[in-house]
Nucleic acid binder design. Structure first.
Lengths: 231, 231
DNA sequence: GAATGTCGATTGCCGGTGCAACAGTTTTGC
DNA sequence: GCAAAACTGTTGCACCGGCAATCGACATTC
């Protein structure tokens, strides 16, 4: 299969960031990746199974699901074209803690982990870059999770919301921003009840800290918002 | 400095697992690691600073501390001889989210990350192993954190305790086990109040689920304990 | 335009858990 | 070996936030 049309996608991933065409040519030739198409609702990866490949989404939209202790499953992440999955796993012999499901018809390419970690005899410079990127990718996921833990351990809901707002504003680079999350989704991330979230957001508006409308947030008093986190 | 006496320690780390003497010789020669001694209370690493080295504890005992949003700091991990720190960071340009403090007089060796990720011209087999180990080490830390999140998002304290107990039993391979944690430490990990933890453990004993004494735990009714997690 | 589904907001209720205080026991340090 | 510090358990109280039910706004389908 000719992968050239997808090179821009591949270059956009944290794993293959900035690779030139000829570098990708060589690497993909060396990796002999498999490519597979999925229909909406099919699983790209199943929780509880080992995986020895890093998956990259070339077309479509996927969702990572985690099985909860009580048997159901909750969405963890949504990923679009260029999304990486299985990256953290591929080194270990740990079974996957998440399932990955196609939300729309999708196309994915799989790079065997073995080939990534074992550069072939003539070690291209780009392969080293790849290894570095792999480490970077995983550690970034670690830090994202770490921030989440930092949120979760805050006791009061107001503190969690405040921290989250400040983090988002930081990320957006401005005090007004929108997020692609429904209230229910945000409540899940902040680990609280949807109604409780609404209630607290309402209070925070009354207190003149923020303004909200749907997925849009505006921080009115950043200083005081920071102060909320300390009590 | 002659590092030979510490080879057994190095071999015991997840990063240098199982390396032969001659392999360590070559690698350490290539890495030109720095070694430093610390007095009790000194900092090996400060939160907020970048680091470009992976640290390995050769002697002593250290604690990783995280600064909380409200200014104080809480202990995250304790590590003994062979403990690794800075490993997750070294790839990224992220500032360290944790400080590392010597709990007793300590000795640490630092491997420059640059050298780890950039194998020197003649790429030894062992160096590849090292890279693989690095990825493995980081992803294991990721999974440890992931399990923590799984704990934290459980709403009731009893569920969190039950999950934790089952996890520990799994790890220990038997239903009676001891952990090197004080009640306060465990409460912090489970993100609850110490008194609430005592109270709930008391209730669980009265319910015939477990027996506890200090750091020792005995699971009496595993089946029913599992059942607790689902409500 | 009616019917249905999704999303956000609001409210009353009450249970779980944080907090503070105290007591008993073990460990540490000199 | 003694005093101080650290650790654990216990209890009363207050309150945050989960739960369930309800309502209005809006989008989608027939």
């Amino acid at each position: 299969m000719n992968l050239r049309p997808y090179y821009p996608v591949l270059r956009g991933t944290s794993l293959l960031r900035g690779m030139r065409d000829d570098e990708l040519d060589k690497m993909l030739d060396c990796f002999a990746p498999r490519v597979r198409r999925y229909q909406k609702g099919e699983f790209l990866m199943l929780a509880g199974y080992e995986t020895k490949e890093v998956g990259i989404l070339l077309e479509g939209q996927i969702t990572a699901l985690k099985n909860t202790p009580d048997g159901s499953s909750v969405a963890i992440t949504e990923m679009g074209v260029g999304g990486l999955f299985g990256d953290v796993l591929s080194g270990s012999s740990t079974k996957s803690p998440v399932s990955v499901m196609a939300q729309t018809d999708s196309l994915a390419i799989y790079l065997p982990y073995e080939k990534i970690i074992h550069p072939c005899a003539h070690l291209h410079e780009s392969h080293l870059q790849l290894l570095q990127n792999l480490v970077l990718t995983i550690s970034n996921k670690y830090f994202a999770l770490d921030r989440r833990v930092e949120l979760l351990i805050c006791k009061s809901l107001r503190v969690r919301i405040s921290l989250w707002l400040l983090e988002q504003a930081e990320e957006a680079g401005q005090d007004t921003f929108a997020v692609p999350l429904t209230r229910a989704g945000l409540a899940e991330y902040l680990n609280c009840d949807r109604s409780a979230l609404s209630r607290e957001l309402g209070r925070m508006q009354r207190d003149g800290l923020i303004e909200t409308f749907r997925g849009s947030f505006k921080i009115l008093d950043k200083e005081r918002l920071r102060h909320q986190c300390q009590e």
